[in-house]
């Protein structure tokens, strides 16, 4: 203890750690423990039984596949948008930059309602696509659309700062040496952006996996087709089946924990790139 104390010149370690841990305890750890304790009331085989139920598995599948697609689209679009925002000047740039956080600020329920309205077969966008036999609302495409909406800010905001701080000298060197733009991008810029891109992707993916408010309006909630995992939890709750709901919740909790942990490892590398510290 003594030795360590000498290293810490800055005061306030005790109090800040104390407050952090207590609040973390009350807000995150105890509630999570409540969930785990509740699940532990059922035997392991019951637990396995619940989470490998056909409907639950397919809900996980739908959740993961739509969240993955949405995050992938967001990764590509987010990269383009971040690139545009950092590298180019054009009228309306500030507005575009300010807009990115809109999905954060706009309540998901409102977003879901508006997106549903737009994408049903009578809606502005939906009627266009339905001519080609593509239905958006009440299908997996609809869920994906809602999830893209929620996930936009994550990738853009992760990539943007890295792109801003990127050292231009390699790029210039490559340019001088006559490398093509495409080559420069993929060989020099992209590797630098990769960690940030992964972080953004991971955050968006994690968020999308758990999204409820906007999806519930647009999904149609058909078992095996458009029923996502949070919806199954909700419907299990409504069926008085607490243990089942908590078991599914526990699995999702573990998934988000893993995503976050991987993310914070990438993030640590990322910070080193941004700050230039080793």
């Amino acid at each position: 203890m003594r030795k360590k104390k000498n290293k810490r010149v800055i005061p306030g370690f005790g109090i800040s750690l104390g407050v952090t841990l207590t609040m973390l305890g009350f807000m995150v750890i105890i509630p999570m423990a409540a969930l785990i304790i509740y699940t532990s009331k059922m035997s392991f085989s019951e637990f396995v039984n619940v989470i490998t139920g056909k409907r639950v598995l397919s809900a996980f599948y739908v959740s993961i596949i739509t969240a993955f697609t949405a995050s992938l689209i967001n990764a590509v679009m987010g990269l383009i948008i971040a690139w545009v925002l950092v590298r180019y000047n054009f009228p309306g740039k500030r507005i575009m930059d300010g807009m990115i956080e809109l999905p954060f600020a706009l309540p998901t329920a409102v977003a879901g309602m508006a997106l549903t309205y737009l994408t049903t077969d009578n809606g502005v966008i939906g009627s266009f696509f339905s001519k080609f036999g593509i239905h958006i609302a009440y299908t997996r495409i609809g869920i994906t659309v809602a999830l893209i909406f929620v996930g936009i800010p994550f990738v853009v905001r992760s990539v943007q700062p890295v792109l801003e701080k990127l050292d231009g000298s390699y790029e210039e060197a490559a340019d001088v040496l006559g490398a093509k733009r495409m080559t420069i991008f993929f060989k020099i810029i992209f590797p630098e952006l990769k960690p940030a891109l992964f972080t953004g992707f991971g955050l968006a993916f994690g968020r999308c996996l758990g999204e409820y408010g906007s999806v519930v309006f647009i999904a149609g909630n058909k078992p095996y087709y458009t029923e996502i995992a949070p919806l199954v939890i909700m419907s299990r709750l409504q069926e008085f089946d607490y243990t089942a709901a908590t078991s599914i919740a526990l699995v999702m909790l573990v998934i988000s924990f893993v995503i976050l942990f991987i993310n914070s490892m990438i993030q640590a590398r990322n910070t080193r790139i941004v700050t230039g510290r080793q």
Binding site: V28, A249, L260
Partner: peptide, 26 residues
């Protein structure tokens, strides 16, 4: 430290539905 910072981030990725459920159980 890493554990704490991961724990802090948990609420962002935890589904709101699960968050509600946790407090309901508590």
């Amino acid at each position: 430290k890493k554990l704490i910072s991961t724990l802090i981030d948990i609420p962002v990725t935890v589904s709101p539905v699960i968050a509600g459920l946790m407090f309901m159980l508590l």
